[in-house]
């Protein structure tokens, strides 16, 4: 398996995959700069919770596109050069699929770690009051990574199956809109049923209440960890994995 993964890393030379990850982080960094350009007392007081509330929203909008692009870049190398008919005489399609999942996992892990570092760095930079709750950020990282990976896996299956990469990319774009729309729904059920896209919001640890339109004052509350939604996401991942395995196994070259 490690050989297959090494070969995936080898293949990603000159594919600029890290640039896709950097683009996501750059947009998020710009957003934080914009949101805190003149931090007031309330911003500093609620800073840590505010980021925990907003980052999932931002991830929900951006990640389906970024994940779709990443998956497309990883899968497209095989379509472009007709390499599947060579590779599948050297390794099973399952091993190839696993290696591509692992490659994505490495990039996603990097994104998540850098995002956490970025959040903590910005908190220190803007002088947020108090210390961040470590457990909250560990849970945030776990949920973000799992949600990102589910979206990536779903997009990878699409990109490996369909030769024309416009199709999975459009689906990723649609997923981004779905994720955004689902965040406005008060009911959690649709978020859990609309594929892997709705989990960025569903796994948020912070809830906003008592928002005042005139004073723009609101309360941010740490809600109980949504382990139920996380369990549903894990079920989605298993389904995506199994469907991916079956579809790729049945695919004839």
């Amino acid at each position: 398996m490690m050989t297959a993964l090494r070969m995936e890393i080898w293949k990603s030379r000159r594919r600029w995959l890290w640039l896709i990850c950097a683009a996501l982080l750059a947009v998020e960094l710009l957003w934080i700069f914009w949101a805190f350009h003149h931090p007031g007392e309330q911003d500093r007081q609620k800073g840590w919770l505010y980021l925990l509330y907003n980052m999932p929203l931002l991830n929900g909008v951006l990640f389906p596109v970024i994940g779709g692009t990443l998956a497309s870049r990883v899968a497209d190398v095989e379509h472009k050069g007709n390499t599947l008919k060579l590779l599948e005489t050297l390794q099973t399609e399952a091993r190839l699929f696993h290696a591509k999942l692992l490659l994505g996992m490495l990039y996603l892990l990097t994104i998540v770690v850098l995002q956490i570092v970025m959040i903590l760095g910005m908190g220190v930079f803007y002088g947020f009051y108090g210390r961040p709750v470590l457990l909250d950020y560990v849970q945030y990282a776990l949920f973000l990574f799992t949600a990102c990976f589910a979206v990536y896996a779903f997009q990878l299956v699409l990109s490996m199956t369909v030769k024309n990469q416009v199709v999975p990319l459009c689906i990723g774009l649609a997923g981004s809109f779905i994720a955004l729309l689902l965040m406005f729904l008060p009911y959690p059920l649709p978020r859990l049923l609309c594929g892997p896209y709705g989990f960025f919001g569903a796994l948020s640890l912070v809830y906003m209440k008592d928002w005042n339109r005139d004073t723009r004052i609101f309360q941010l509350v740490r809600i109980p960890t949504p382990w139920g939604s996380f369990a549903v996401l894990l079920v989605w991942m298993v389904v995506i994995y199994l469907v991916g395995r079956i579809v790729l196994h049945r695919k004839e070259l």
Partner: peptide, 15 residues
């Protein structure tokens, strides 16, 4: 123990 070249050649253009 089998080498193959089926239809068009397989290659990674960026490598």
């Amino acid at each position: 123990d089998v080498g193959s070249l089926i239809e068009s050649p397989s290659y990674y253009g960026h490598l």
